[in-house]
Simulated scan of single mutants.
Amino acid sequence: MQRIGMVIGVRPEKLEEYKRLHAAVWPEVLAMISACNIKNYSIFLKEPENLLFSFFEYHGTDYQADMAKMAADPKTQEWWAVCMPCQQPLDSRKDGEWWASMEEVFFHA
């Protein structure tokens, strides 16, 4: 099992839309998240900075393949098309990232 943490900004004028979307995530999107071996997925909001922090556990054996599977899914692509305009990627993210990856520096089970 791998724990993943990521961060991104949310545009202030899109904050309520983002909350509304995530209060009723499409069932097909949730099913794809599960099919890609992701469990315990949460997104947290920090205001007034308008930062979104996501955390999930990856329980598969090939993270890159599962992420490619998710990215190829038409319903997920449609979901991302409505969510991405709400988001504001960090300038400090790595090349190729939308959500900036984070280093885990502490864990206690």
Rank of each mutant, 00 (worst) to 15 (best):
Y58R: 01
L45S: 06
Y58V: 01
F56T: 03
L52V: 04
E17D: 13
N50F: 13
V25Y: 13
I38M: 15
V29L: 10
E57G: 00
A23T: 12
G60M: 04
Y58A: 01
Y58C: 04
G60V: 03
L21F: 12
A31E: 13
L30G: 11
E17Y: 05
I38C: 08
L21G: 09
I33S: 07
Y58K: 01
K39M: 02
S34G: 02
E57W: 02
F53P: 01
T61V: 11
L45R: 06
C36F: 02
L30V: 07
R20E: 13
A31M: 06
W26N: 10
V29W: 13
I38D: 00
P48H: 10
K46V: 06
L30S: 09
E57A: 08
F55Y: 15
L45N: 07
Y41V: 04
G60L: 06
C36A: 08
Y58I: 03
I43E: 02
L45A: 09
M32L: 13
L30Q: 14
L51A: 02
A35N: 10
F44G: 07
L52S: 02
N50W: 06
L51D: 03
S54R: 02
K39D: 09
N50H: 15
A31I: 07
A23Q: 15
K46D: 12
M32D: 09
A23E: 14
F53W: 11
N40S: 11
F55V: 05
Y18S: 07
V25L: 14
Y41D: 07
V25I: 15
T61R: 11
G60N: 08
V29Y: 13
W26V: 00
T61H: 06
H22Q: 09
E47K: 10
L45G: 10
A23I: 05
H59E: 12
K19P: 10
N37W: 02
S54E: 12
C36I: 00
W26Y: 12
L21K: 09
K46P: 02
P48L: 05
Y18A: 15
T61Q: 13
A23H: 14
E47W: 00
A24M: 11
F55A: 00
